[in-house]
Structure formats: structure tokens, C-alpha cells
Nucleic acid binder design. Sequence first.
DNA 1: GTCTATACCCGGATAGAC
DNA 2: GTCTATCCGGGTATAGAC
Lengths: 201, 201
Amino acid sequence: MASDARRAGRRSGNPEPYTLASLVEVAARAFNERGYDATSMEDLSRAAGITKSSFYHHVAGKEALLRAALDRALDGLFGILGEPGAVDGEPLERLRHIVRRQVEVLATELPYVTLLLRLRGNTETERWALARRREFDQAVAGLVAAAVDAGAVRPDVHPVVAARLLSGTVNSLIEWYRPGRVPLADLVDAVDRQVFEGLRR
Amino acid sequence: MASDARRAGRRSGNPEPYTLASLVEVAARAFNERGYDATSMEDLSRAAGITKSSFYHHVAGKEALLRAALDRALDGLFGILGEPGAVDGEPLERLRHIVRRQVEVLATELPYVTLLLRLRGNTETERWALARRREFDQAVAGLVAAAVDAGAVRPDVHPVVAARLLSGTVNSLIEWYRPGRVPLADLVDAVDRQVFEGLRR
DNA sequence: GTCTATACCCGGATAGAC
DNA sequence: GTCTATCCGGGTATAGAC
């Protein structure tokens, strides 16, 4: 019945059935399915099991949902840059650490990172998130350049182009990876090897 | 003045200032900048230099513009599969031919392919284009599997995952490649080497 | 906290004069 | 072919009863 779905949050014993975080999760998934602009607040409220007006009682608006989701994605990514494996050691090994961890964060925070990677920059919120994303990419690009300088990569690579292709390869996971199909550890290894060793035997 | 911009098409000596193709090009660029849903017919008509109603005199509607743009992208991609280099020879070399040509088509048909790669499948037109795109990807995946069987690639690659990563790497070009910055021939070589030889020296 | 009802705006698309 | 004016549906968001 409708009231069953409507109260599922309460039934499951959650004392706060409609937390911001849970609504953000619902919203992020919907945004990814249909696109941010094509998703209406009506869609979101129905997915949450309440009416549009009730939904507005819990969230400030559509853009606030987007912002919260993007925050979560960026926190995940920037967290990687502070890890010991990303800070200490040879440039190539630091780069490998970041790539491998980035695959894991993409997989575990999939809906949020997907949203981040599809932004067009139409609003101030989107432009802010895009700027932070560029910061992350530039950190990676810096490491690629350092690895080139250290002689750890093929001498003919163009650092800027290589960094873009590297990021593109990793980020393309959002287009097809779904939890549970390919074991995450296998995926991490597959990306690592494909990026650093290439396909050819 | 407004009338100057408005009649730029005529002034430039074009006898048919508003062909479908030229309006599709304008539309594709706008769709890519702001996203399809966020782009209004008002935006498009203004970009073309005429009013919304005049714009409707030339095109059937927003979705028709999208469809024409997607057609162009798909024609470019499927054209590759029929080329001799994609049909004859060892699997790995056929795959390399496709990858290199795919980079070229992405670059030359950039606005149209970009649109194709960002579809969400909200309308029948979008789902049709996505289905055709999957056909293309499956052709590539088949070649990856054949190259594995032929022993031309590292024996530990998972063909399906490798094909996805391969497509992801190539397709990620739309996110940053802009004509004239990096010479196209260099880009083709860079993608070829990164995909098949990897980054490590 | 949730609902019904509604204000308000904007987008796609059309009518009809020039 | 282009314009002004308009229709109509659907979107975000709010008011106010329960």
C-alpha cells in the first residue's frame, strides 16, 4: 500500500526517517538516471514516498540537494590526496596509489561522483564544484609531470595529455561500473595495469 | 547592430542562410554547453540570430534537432567499422585502426559525438541512439576478445572490462579536447600508445 | 509533518499579421 | 520568412488547514 512505502523509513526503526543525507542519496540516484534538469521535485518527492510540499519541509530546494551530493563526492576525492601513499614515495608509486584509490572512491561513492563528473556549470553551485574538481585533476597532473621528470614513464608522453587520458580512463567507470558485478579489487587491478602497462602483451 | 548579426548568414553570401545542418550545428554546440534540457528554444533561436517563432519555421522542434545531431555522430562512428583497416588483418591491428580513427572522428565531429556520449535515454530518440551506440561498443568489445584469443594482449586482461576502459579512455576526449590546441596527429599517437603500451617506461 | 490548493514563472509550440 | 502575441503544460516553491 501507499502508506507502507510512505512509512518505510519509520518502519525500519530509523528515528529520523527523512534525514538530509538519506534524501540526498535518493536525489543523487534520480539525478543520475534522468539528468539533473530533467528530474523534477515531484519525481524526487515521489521517490522518497512523500508529497512535493512535504519534501520541501525537509530540504531547502533542488540546488541544495545537488550541493550536498557534490560535497560528498569532493570530500571523498580530496581525502585521497592526504593519504600517506599519495604523499610519500616516488612519483609513479604515488600516482598509482591515487589511481587505485580513486577507483575505489568512484565505486563506493558512485552516485555522488557521477553527479560531479557530469556537471555543466549552469549555476554558481556547479561552477564551484567544477573548480574544486579541477584542483584535484591538477594535483594528479602535477604527479604525472613529476613521474616524467623522474624518468619513470615512457619518455615520449606529453604530461598534460597523459594526465587527461589517465583521468578520463578512471572517470569513465561511472558509465558502466555497478556494484557487485565485477569485484572491486579486480577492477582496481585492471585499471592499474591497463593504465600503466597497456593492453599489448 | 542587431540586424547585422541577424543577417550575417545572408551577408556571407550563403543563398540558404538557415539550412537544417547549420541550425543543427548551432544547436549541438548549445546543447553541449548547457545540457540538452537546460537549453531552451529561445536560447537556440537567439544563437541563430532570429526569434523563436522564426526558428520553428525551419525546424520541427527540439527533439528533431537532437536526432539530426545524433545521426551525424553515429554515421561518423559506424563509418569506421566499414573501413579496410577495421576489416582486414590481425585483431590487434584492426583494433588499433579503430581506436586511432575513433579519435579522429571524435575530434572532427566533436559537438555531435559529445551529445551522443552524454545521453540519458529520457526520450525514444535518445534510447534509439543509445542502442546504436551500444552496437558500436560491442563491435569494439568483440575485437578486444579476439585479440585476447589471438594472444596479442596481456593474458590477464578481462576482455569486457578492458573494452570498457578502452572506450572510456577514447571517449573521455570530449571532456577536454578542443580543435587547434594539440595537433590531431599527436593526439592520435598519444592515445594509441597510452592504451596499448601504457604509461610506464 | 503531511497534506491540498495555488501562485508564479518559464519552456515548447502555434496563430496569424506583415 | 520573420515578427508579436498567446496558449498550455509543467516546473519550483509557498500558504495554510489538519
